[in-house]
């Protein structure tokens, strides 16, 4: 399998099946399981196809258990696929070639690589040796990361005494010390406060710009995805159900826009309903849904018909869009 020069990642028909053992709860369940252990095969990833260009940032979305993390683990070489082909920078990840491992990183928001009882700087020095980074490069990288992440005050503190945000900054810097060309970021901002989320996002954006790095990001915080990624891949029940730009996703899953009104004088719900679907009507505050294609025309008519003090037109929140997409994809299976 070959990779074109501008392609960073190519995936074809990727699947992963797990065998899981099942046991009923309680003592009786334990005894039954001891005598007759039952197992079943879970199809975590089912025929995923994906292409990423060098420098591209992609948001990988899906509900819990959709197969996002399993896919990232296969792309980074942690898991061996059941079937399918994976090519990352010309390498087959499962072989864990040293040059491949030097070219990628996987940051897991819920796992740590830093040495718990030592200052974070010790982990950086270990990574410097493992990735064979010379002193000049090491110092330059640390200086750059310090500018964005403000690390200097925390590097000499024991990792276990760092706050979650401080630790995550160190985790991210340690994982990127060797300047990887492909970043797999699995929930990198989980549990962080809003300021720290913004700081991490800025760092990732800056890294992508400087290094022309390819980034796949999973996050439950839609703000991470909307701030960083133009392209979205949505995975559900192990299958890719959408692959395209964020705008197209909103258009496809949400054929209407939300018009928020602040009225100067009251209007009845019946009168408002002539302009669109009334989502809420609380005194002078009104929220209407209007078909996407007719928003301009309807809004103009509404302004002449009603006494409007303020009007804004918005796309529905991305969380709603994604939720609706999952609902739509699952409906035929349940039918």
């Amino acid at each position: 399998m070959t990779t074109p020069h501008d392609a960073a990642l190519r995936v074809r028909g990727l699947t992963k099946h797990y065998v899981v053992h099942e046991k009923e709860p309680g003592l009786l369940g334990s005894l039954k399981s001891f005598v007759n252990r039952r197992s079943r095969t879970v199809e975590a990833v089912r025929g995923v196809n994906l292409d990423l260009a060098r420098g591209e940032m992609v948001g990988f979305l899906g509900p819990n258990g959709a197969g996002k993390t399993t896919t990232l683990k296969m792309l980074s070489g942690l898991l061996h696929p059941t079937s399918g082909e994976v090519d990352v920078l010309g390498f087959e990840p499962r072989r864990r070639h040293a040059d491949f491992l030097r070219s990628i990183t996987l940051v897991m928001g819920q796992k740590q690589q830093l040495l718990w009882d030592l200052p974070a700087l010790d982990s950086f020095l270990v990574n410097q040796a493992i990735y064979e980074i010379d002193d000049a490069d090491f110092k330059r990288t640390m200086r750059e990361y310090d500018e964005v992440l403000d690390l200097s005050g925390i590097l000499r503190k024991q990792v276990r005494k760092l706050s979650l945000g401080e630790r995550m900054k160190c985790e991210l810097a340690a994982a990127l010390l060797h300047r990887p060309r492909v970043l797999f970021l699995d929930e990198p901002t989980i549990g962080l406060d809003v300021n720290m989320q913004v700081r991490i996002r800025e760092f990732v954006r800056e890294y992508n710009r400087r290094e022309d790095a390819t980034v796949i990001l999973t996050s439950h915080y839609m703000a991470d995805v909307t701030a960083l990624c133009e392209r979205i891949v949505v995975i559900d029940a192990g299958r890719v159900v959408f692959d395209g730009d964020l705008g197209a996703l909103v258009e496809r899953s949400s054929p209407y826009k939300t018009v928020k009104l602040q009225l100067a004088s009251p209007a009845s719900t019946e009168r408002l309903a002539r302009h669109g679907e009334v989502v809420s009507h609380d005194g002078l505050g009104v929220e209407l849904n209007m078909p996407r294609a007719e928003v301009g025309e309807r809004a103009a008519r509404l302004l002449t018909d009603l006494d409007v003090a303020d009007l804004t037109v918005e796309d529905p929140p991305i969380e709603t869009v994604i939720g609706r997409l999952f609902g739509a994809e699952r409906a035929p299976e349940h039918a």
Binding site: L115, S123, L125, A129, I130
Partner: peptide, 21 residues
């Protein structure tokens, strides 16, 4: 030689870890 350098760095960190304990 490369493995030796890596091992030395890991050993220093692990020694520090053991001293802590």
């Amino acid at each position: 030689a490369s493995l030796g350098r890596k091992f030395r760095a890991i050993f220093s960190a692990q020694l520090a870890n053991m001293v802590a304990y």
